[in-house]
Simulated assay, not measured.
Amino acid sequence: MPDAIFFPHNPSCPRRRAGAFSLIALLAAVLCWSMSAGAQELLLAADFDDKPLDQPIGTGGAALGEPVSVPARMDAVVRDDVMSGKALAISWNTPGTGAGSARFQWRDDMEIRTGTVSIWLRVTPGMAPAEDWVGGYPVNLREAGSSAKSFGTLYFSRTRTASVSDATGGPATLLFGFTWSPGESYLIEWVYDMDAGTYNLSIDGQPYISNRPHNVDMGDRGLGALLVGIGSSSHPDSRIDVDDILVTWSGEGIFADGFEPIQ
Rank of each mutant, 00 (worst) to 15 (best):
M1P: 11
F6V: 15
H9F: 07
C13P: 01
C13M: 13
R16L: 12
R17S: 14
G19L: 05
S22H: 03
L23K: 02
I24S: 13
L27Q: 07
L27C: 01
L27E: 09
A28V: 04
L31P: 00
M35E: 12
A39H: 04
Q40Y: 06
L42I: 15
L42C: 12
A45R: 07
K51T: 08
D54M: 13
P56Q: 13
T59N: 14
G65Y: 02
P71E: 13
A72I: 00
D75N: 15
A76C: 04
V78Q: 04
D80T: 08
D81E: 09
D81T: 06
V82G: 06
S84C: 07
G85E: 08
S91C: 10
T94P: 00
T97C: 02
A99Q: 12
S101W: 10
S101L: 14
R107M: 11
I112R: 00
T114H: 15
G115F: 06
V117P: 01
S118N: 10
R122D: 02
V123G: 11
T124H: 02
P125A: 03
P125M: 03
G126N: 03
W133E: 12
V134K: 14
V139Q: 09
V139A: 08
R142M: 10
K149V: 01
F151W: 03
L154P: 07
F156G: 12
F156V: 14
S157K: 11
S163R: 09
S165T: 14
T173H: 09
L174V: 12
L174Y: 03
L174T: 11
F176G: 00
G177C: 10
W180E: 07
G183P: 01
E184A: 14
S185A: 15
S185C: 04
S185T: 12
A196W: 04
G197N: 06
G197Y: 02
S202D: 03
I203W: 01
Q206L: 08
P207T: 10
S210G: 01
V216Q: 01
D220E: 11
L223R: 07
L227I: 07
V228M: 03
G229M: 05
P236N: 04
V242R: 11
I245V: 11
T248S: 12
W249H: 14
W249I: 03
G253K: 10
I254D: 00
F255K: 07
A256P: 00
D257S: 14
G258I: 05
I262E: 09
I262N: 02
